[in-house]
Simulated scan of single mutants.
Amino acid sequence: MNLSRTSPVGQCLDMCPFKERKQREQQGRLHKYEILDGQWTGRGQKLKRLPLADPAKTVKEYSRPAAGKELSSPRDLRPSSVLLKTVQYLLFEVWDRVNDSDSVSLAEAYSFVFDRLRAVRQDLTVQRIRGHSGALVLEGSLGFLLCSPYLVRELPLGTYDEVLHANQVRESFAELMECYRTEPKCQREAEFQALLLLYDLGNMDTLNRALKLPRGVVDSPQVLIALAVNRAHLEGNWTRLFRLLRRLDCLQTCAFYRHLPNIRDRALRILTHAYNSRNCRFPLDLLASLLVVDNIEVARQMCIRRGLSLAPEDQQSIIFYKTSFKDLGPEGPGKEGHLVERKKGDFTWAEIMLGEDEGEFARSYK
């Protein structure tokens, strides 16, 4: 851990400083995940009854820097060990307990975890924590930031701010790369260098920086497959790209997820030109396999939406005829059974976010 001489050193050993916890309790600004069950403030009839904060559940909220606002008091800053414990708590005890089929609870959990992780990174930045200690915290936070767009894909736009989320991803990656620069032997560096390549698909600056990484990182299996995906994308080799996507793990696929709709749309355009004929029949099961969609019905609807016709004799083939192709843009993001759900397997989402191989370590905070 490298700290500048002028950087404050956190002294708060709780997930939320005492002063903030009491203040939010008195102002009625506690989140439902932070309330002490069945206990309320106020005892007289004239006093407003407000829920009490549970010290074991209350987590420091993000506070925007403002003129005259003190963000660097050591008593309000959490050291790296507490920040890591906070990340683990948010993922295991909050996110993994949410009912993902209930859009209301999913939206509440996402909003809560996103805000509290933003506060974690703020504490990290104010103290200028780098190296191994900073990397552990940022890796866990990025695990959530990379997976959650897939998990909250069906939430209303007002609940999930795509631009703000993407900004947090980029800023977190930038800080993580600085941690790796100051501590070149971080255990998960190759994994997250690969995740950045997949998230920033086709970005030449990211590619050039990756090619200058130290040997042992640049020639790791994770980085090599991420580079291969980028190469296939830049060459327009969609068949190879989709083959490579099958080989990515769950977290890697989530990092790539935002590119899937555009990639599939471009692949359909190319197929429409390549097989442009009223007499040509392209099997829907082959199309579903090439685009790695879950079943032929998904492939059928993608084609029908674009004005392409089914073969009248069996309805199991598509006729690629470019004059009938409608330029309606990519599909909306959806559930990915083959690419995400099967790869997740029996792991919880917190284990995916914190690293499957880190399961025992990740639970050590309990």
Rank of each mutant, 00 (worst) to 15 (best):
L157N: 08
A288G: 07
C186F: 01
R306V: 03
L77F: 02
N262H: 11
G355Y: 06
Y150D: 01
R188F: 04
E154L: 08
V217T: 02
R264H: 08
R78N: 02
L3S: 10
S105D: 06
E25N: 01
N279S: 13
T348K: 15
L117D: 02
L251F: 13
G332V: 06
N2A: 10
T41I: 03
P333G: 08
R306T: 08
L124V: 11
S73T: 00
G158P: 10
E360N: 09
Y150W: 05
I35E: 09
E162P: 12
K46E: 13
L271H: 09
Y257A: 13
E139L: 08
R5A: 03
L3I: 15
R21M: 14
V223H: 00
D37Q: 04
G42S: 08
F173C: 02
Y180A: 05
G68Y: 05
W40N: 11
A299K: 00
G307W: 02
A109L: 07
D115A: 13
R49P: 12
L287H: 14
R246P: 06
K185M: 09
Y257G: 11
A56T: 14
A267V: 05
R300W: 09
G334R: 07
R264N: 06
E336H: 10
Y110S: 10
P214N: 05
E162M: 13
P283H: 08
D123A: 07
Q39F: 01
R240A: 15
R209P: 03
L146Q: 05
P312M: 01
K185N: 10
L197K: 05
W238K: 06
F347Q: 14
Q252S: 04
F112G: 00
F282R: 14
V82S: 06
D37C: 11
S220Y: 03
S148E: 07
D285Y: 06
S141E: 01
N2D: 05
L234F: 12
V82G: 04
N262I: 14
L260W: 02
L197M: 00
G38T: 03
